[in-house]
Design a protein around this nucleic acid. Structure first.
Lengths: 244, 244
DNA sequence: ACCAATTTGTCCGTATGTATG
DNA sequence: TCATACATACGGACAAATTGG
């Protein structure tokens, strides 16, 4: 009752949170640059005025965020790579009960952009990797698991060739969920050949630098995927998690 | 010397990592369902065979990941919301020195899809929110900061109307970096009116359910943004962080 | 509204393994 | 090879906040 409300809420967040915040700030602000070693736990604990146990709790959060990475014993400031974020994003989507329809619509836009950009920027090495991918799929056309993983690899190679990190970041969590859906479709419909033909056509158009056509073919390729999904009797509006 | 090498590498990852992994598994696998309270720290520590301090380090990682949230004192299993991931993804992109070109290309594809989907699914309430947004921008057309934040809001409203969580997840980190770039352009070029007009046109086409035209107008709108960026003398291939 | 038990937040001390000079 | 520094992990302790009776 009589307590002064002024002092009531001095401690807003637990100490370990403030530690994570402070260290993250230190890095984002550039006081600690990527590549540098983090100070020892004792030093940091002393500097921030907390116990080492508390400091370590905070460090675990920062570490998990990817701002620091373990390099041997010490922690080193790192550039968080967005691939680390992709799996977490995918998990968020499945827990949110995202539907195949949502994934398909988004994949449609991103893979089309990917293909168009790849036409402009692809180089010889990437092309030969794609050729190798196609050859391998042709050789293993009966092996469904192999075809699915080669399909994923094909689109990943294309994304790399597109040379756009914003796009890579955006498409990764979606493709992580979308393409494995092939595992559901293929065993029932055996449309491996259609996939292979589409890939062949796409790489052919890329070699011709035909960005118009490559876009429409990529859309056709993904429309196939949608038809396959529906043909298995699965509901596009149903969450994926059950299916996968 | 005589030690059996069989036992040499039993411990691959530190215990706190395994804790984070185990607890994350527990949740992803559905043994702990969203909304449930996490067991107490002592229980978990006993169950996983680690000390409570170690367990807490692991918990901090899981907590930071968004799989559990604080509810009063205890931790409660939660569905990680992808908006939490967006800021981290944005940070990753800026630290990776992503260029305006990369952002623009990606935004182009995603905002176009957003607009097209919005046409199909928008409802009366969302339309009136967009109308209000436009009216407010018209009333504050001189206030640059206001215009920028209303521009962001306009596109966010559209994204919500598109009703696609995969798209929301993908576009958020990009839009978080892309649209604030207006803060650079507008003070120098004063093209607020063009933004307002584009928004008016887009909402008009949405009301007409004209998905063809709305796509081209959205592209035009973003092409304007690109021209503005170039007109300020900024290099599209330069990282954003300096500019923002 | 009060009391007691539970649980978290924080700290301290210590032992162990390992990498580095 | 040896010694040191450091991270990892454990055990125990206590205050504060929360919960349940």
């Amino acid at each position: 009752m009589l307590e002064a409300p002024v002092f009531s809420k001095l401690t807003l967040a637990p100490a370990y949170r403030q530690v994570a915040e402070s260290v993250g700030q230190l890095i984002s602000s550039g006081k600690l640059r990527p590549g540098e070693l983090l100070p020892t736990e004792m030093e940091l604990a002393l500097h921030l005025g907390v116990n080492r146990s508390t400091l370590r709790e905070g460090l675990r959060a920062v570490e998990h965020e990817g701002l620091v990475r373990r390099d041997g014993k010490r922690l080193r400031v790192a550039i968080p790579h967005y691939t680390d974020l992709a799996t977490r994003a995918s998990r968020a989507l499945t827990m949110q009960q995202v539907t195949f329809r949502e994934l398909w619509e988004t994949a449609m836009a991103m893979e089309t952009l990917t293909a168009v950009l790849a036409v402009e920027r692809i180089n010889g090495e990437a092309i030969s990797q794609l050729d190798a991918n196609i050859a391998e799929m042709a050789a293993n056309i009966k092996d469904i698991d192999r075809v699915v993983s080669l399909d994923i690899e094909f689109h990943d190679l294309l994304a790399e060739a597109a040379n756009n990190r914003a796009l890579s970041l955006a498409r990764e969590p979606i493709s992580l969920l979308f393409f494995p859906a092939g595992k559901i479709i293929l065993p029932r419909l055996k449309t491996q050949k259609r996939i292979l033909d589409a890939h062949k056509k796409i790489i052919e158009l890329i070699k011709q630098r035909n960005s118009q056509e490559v876009g429409t073919w990529m859309r056709r390729h993904l429309a196939d995927m949608k038809r396959g999904y529906q043909a298995t009797g699965l509901d596009m509006e149903q969450p994926l998690d059950g299916a996968l």
